[in-house]
């Protein structure tokens, strides 16, 4: 495992059992500074346990974890922000007081915590609710306040579990912008979510855990290419089966008139494109490699039995 300063987290052959149940089994990965690292997996796969081990809430039975340059300690914890999946706030406390208190618990001086809280609330268009009690806020507002609490101390690393759940599209955009801004500033971001579109759009790399095992790990685009079939997607007019390079034609149900063309073994996408251009009666609106969506890959991996050989 790499120990360069660019690495925020190193998880090295970590396992964790609860009684006879092995929740996490020999998982290894790294998270870099300034990247969004997606942690994926079905419910009960071991994501929360892994995140809790990184946060030192749980100790691994085996393996080693280093966070921000060393084993986690009180000082390191002050440099981490955590947004758990099931979350809540002190209901009968003023928003600004609660944020200031939680900022202080992250080692911030009281006045600085208060100033930063006001800045964040203003950015999130919540400046006018600072003195309201949390119980008076809408659910979406509370979600945004929770996110603000996670980043109030300007952490070097954040772990966010389902950060967009419960947010409407507008607020999703606001929080997404905040996350992307943190990435630009070099913050390491570990994000667990079931919203694959967000992962495709935002994440740089990913780890998929299935039943405690490491199922996929790597660059998001590279993983998608890895699962790509020898096929292209086309939209347009023509008799696709008549093309010499095409082995099979499948209609694609994506709301538009598309087809997935499985190519013969020796045929490349460029060859096929040349054949289409040379064949009268064919008109192309769209032509792309048939790279599967992360949802497809997720279903494919999560639905498959665990195979140790395919993992790495």
């Amino acid at each position: 495992m790499n120990s360069s300063p660019n690495i925020a987290v190193t998880v090295d052959h970590v396992s964790k059992s609860f009684g006879t149940f092995k929740a996490v089994d020999d998982i290894s990965f790294e998270v870099r500074r300034g990247e969004i690292f997606a942690m994926l997996g079905p419910n009960g796969a071991g994501k929360s346990t892994t995140m809790r081990m990184i946060l030192d809430i749980l100790k691994p039975d085996e393996g080693k974890i280093t966070v921000l340059g060393g084993p986690i300690n009180d000082r390191t914890k002050d440099r981490i922000g955590y947004l758990p999946e099931e979350r809540g706030l002190y209901r009968n406390v003023k928003v600004i007081d609660m944020m200031t208190y939680l900022g202080e618990l992250k080692g911030m001086p009281k006045s600085k915590a208060r100033t930063r809280a006001m800045e964040l609330l203003s950015f999130l268009a919540l400046g006018d609710v600072a003195k309201k009690k949390v119980s008076e806020l809408s659910k979406g507002m509370q979600q945004k306040v929770q996110f603000a609490v996670t980043v109030i101390h300007e952490p070097d690393m954040i772990i966010i579990d389902e950060p967009f759940s419960g947010l409407d599209p507008v607020n999703t955009l606001v929080v997404k912008e905040l996350v992307l801004d943190l990435r630009r500033r070099g913050t390491a971001i570990i994000m667990s979510t079931h919203q694959m579109s967000q992962v495709e759009e935002m994440a740089d790399r990913l780890l998929m855990i299935n039943r405690g095992h490491q199922a996929l790990y790597g660059d998001v685009d590279e993983v998608r290419r890895r699962y790509a079939t020898h096929a292209v997607i086309v939209e347009g007019q023509g008799n696709w089966a008549s093309l010499p390079g095409v082995a099979e034609v499948h209609a694609v149900n994506n709301g538009r008139q598309g087809f997935k063309l499985l190519m013969k073994d020796q045929v490349t996408a460029n060859d096929l494109l040349s054949q289409i251009a040379a064949s009268p009666g064919h008109e192309v609106d769209r032509f792309e490699l048939a790279v599967p969506s992360l949802t497809d890959i997720f279903i494919q991996v999560a639905g498959a039995p665990v195979d140790q050989e395919q993992i790495r």
């Binding site: 946060l55 809430i57 914890k77 955590y82 979350r87 002190y90 992250k106 609490v149």
Partner: peptide
């Protein structure tokens, strides 16, 4: 009980011992 049922506890334990 409030901190536990509201799940603030999980955030607190990542901030203080």
């Amino acid at each position: 009980v409030e901190e536990k049922t509201n799940r603030i506890m999980e955030v607190l334990v990542t901030s203080v011992r």
